[in-house]
């Protein structure tokens, strides 16, 4: 895949190959309707051994438990390959589901891509 590409799925706006990581720009609602497409894209990316996957949630306005389940699965998948999954720029509404599910502590959550890259 090229350094910046669109996999044709609405939920994944762009995949950017950075020097130290692969960054995924996610967009719109991540619910039961759209999380299967995200799950598929993340699984494919992790199978390529990206080392570090950084998810940009700037444009995600809503996420439900199917979205959280997708991210938990991606986290476990990348950890098995000794990689890291990082997220940044969560809107309060999206962050709140991680709080309700008490899953904040298992994810690496940052305020920006720069901060994630520095970590």
């Amino acid at each position: 895949m090229s350094p910046a590409e669109s996999p044709g799925s609405e939920v994944v706006k762009e995949i950017r190959r950075l020097e130290q990581a692969v960054a995924v720009d996610i967009s719109g609602d991540v619910d039961l309707h759209r999380s299967p497409a995200l799950r598929e894209t993340l699984a494919k990316l992790i199978d390529e051994n990206p080392g570090r996957l950084i998810l940009n949630l700037t444009d995600v306005g809503y996420m439900d438990s199917s979205g959280v389940a997708t991210l938990v699965e991606a986290l476990q998948r990348i950890q098995r390959k000794e990689g890291r999954l990082q997220m940044h720029s969560l809107k309060p509404r999206v962050r709140s589901i991680f709080e309700i599910a008490r899953l904040e502590s298992i994810f690496e959550i940052y305020s920006s891509e720069e901060e994630a890259l520095r970590a």
């Binding site: 438990s65 959280v68 389940a69 997708t70 938990v72 699965e73 476990q76 589901i97 309700i100 599910a101 008490r102 899953l103 298992i106």
Partner: peptide, 18 residues
């Protein structure tokens, strides 16, 4: 159980929490 980290099983917990 919330201590069990796995995909799924969150929906009812969220309903009861909210």
């Amino acid at each position: 159980e919330l201590s069990e980290i796995r995909p799924g099983g969150l929906g009812v917990h969220i309903m009861r929490e909210v």
